Simulated scan of single mutants.
Amino acid sequence: MDASELQAIGDTLMRLVTPGMTPKDLVKAMRKEHPGASKKDIARAALHAIIANADQEPGKSRNLQAFALAERTQQSE
C-alpha cells in the first residue's frame, strides 16, 4: 500500500469511526468504501490516522487506537 492509499483509508476511518463502534462494524463499513483494503491495511491506516489526528480529534483517535490494537492482537494469535 502506498502513502496515498494509506492517507485515503485513514481519512475514511476518521470520517466513519463513532464511539462504541465495534472493530467488526468498522471493517464492514470500510470495506464498502475501500473493497480492496485488507484488515491489515485498515489497521495500518488507523495507526497512521491516530498519529496524524490526535491533536485535532482525540475522541476519534482513541476509538481508532482501540480498533488498531484489537486488530493487531487478533492477527498475532
Rank of each mutant, 00 (worst) to 15 (best):
M1H: 09
A3H: 05
A3C: 01
A3R: 07
A3L: 14
A3N: 10
A3D: 15
S4D: 14
S4I: 09
S4Y: 14
E5Q: 15
E5K: 13
L6F: 02
Q7K: 15
Q7L: 13
Q7T: 01
A8F: 04
I9P: 13
G10K: 06
G10C: 12
G10E: 08
D11Q: 14
D11A: 11
D11I: 01
D11P: 03
T12P: 15
L13H: 06
L13W: 10
M14F: 09
R15F: 07
R15I: 00
L16C: 01
L16F: 06
L16R: 07
V17S: 02
V17R: 00
T18C: 00
T18W: 03
T18L: 10
T18F: 02
T18K: 12
P19E: 01
P19T: 06
P19Y: 02
M21D: 04
M21R: 01
M21E: 03
T22F: 07
T22P: 01
P23D: 03
P23Y: 05
K24G: 10
K24R: 14
K24S: 14
K24D: 15
K24C: 01
D25R: 10
D25S: 14
L26S: 00
V27D: 08
V27A: 03
V27Q: 08
K28E: 12
K28W: 09
A29V: 02
M30H: 01
K32S: 10
E33F: 11
E33V: 09
H34L: 05
P35K: 00
P35D: 12
G36S: 10
A37E: 03
A37H: 05
S38M: 06
K40N: 11
K40L: 12
D41C: 02
I42A: 01
I42S: 05
I42L: 07
A43S: 12
R44S: 13
A45Y: 11
A45S: 08
L47C: 13
L47V: 03
L47N: 14
L47E: 09
H48T: 05
H48M: 07
I50Q: 10
I51L: 12
I51N: 09
A52W: 00
A52Y: 09
N53E: 08
A54M: 10
A54F: 12
D55V: 01
D55G: 13
Q56G: 12
E57P: 01
E57Q: 05
E57L: 04
P58M: 05
K60W: 05
K60P: 11
S61I: 00
S61F: 01
N63S: 04
N63K: 00
N63M: 07
L64I: 02
L64S: 07
L64P: 03
Q65K: 05
Q65S: 12
F67Q: 03
F67G: 04
A68E: 04
A68V: 02
A68G: 06
L69Q: 11
A70C: 06
A70R: 09
R72L: 14
R72Q: 09
R72N: 03
T73K: 15
T73R: 11
T73S: 04
Q74I: 07
Q74L: 13
Q74S: 11
Q74G: 11
Q74W: 13
Q75M: 10
Q75K: 13
S76G: 02
E77D: 08
E77I: 14
E77A: 08
